[in-house]
Amino acid sequence: MTVKKRTEDLTFFQKIYVAEIGRGLMLTLKNMFRPKVTMQYPEVKFIPPASYRGRPVLVQENNGVERCVACGLCSRVCPALAIEVQASETELEKERYPEKFEINMLRCIFCGFCEEVCPEEAIVMSKDYELVFTNREDAIYDKDKLLTSVDKLKDRLEFLRKFK
């Protein structure tokens, strides 16, 4: 084992140690009277910044069509195999759309790879962190739950454009 030598010798007061303990105690004492940072969660809710990776959602344009073309890249890149996509054909110019798009929130690890790989900016991480379910089936989010209007995701989309 290598012994690391201190770069500076301790001063006399530090060596006595008792004085340093006293300083430490005063520090905690001071903190006891400082304002508290706790948020009273169910009553007060944390609003995350744009960089926050909450549950992934699908971007829905204002005309009601989802951006997703069901290419399956998110599904492929997902390290936890949380995403299942079934494509189908549509008359729209994008040709493909997801007939089924399911994210298993029990598998999701919120890594954001899906968002990163998406060629259409169609799946993004939202600010939603309140994920509660009481059985495995409820934990699988389908298109109904995933589609989110583009207006609500402005923050994140701007963030992506800036930093991705």
Partner: peptide
């Protein structure tokens, strides 16, 4: 057509 990606 569009049934599946080949890697799946």
């Amino acid at each position: 057509r569009f049934k599946s990606r080949v890697w799946e």
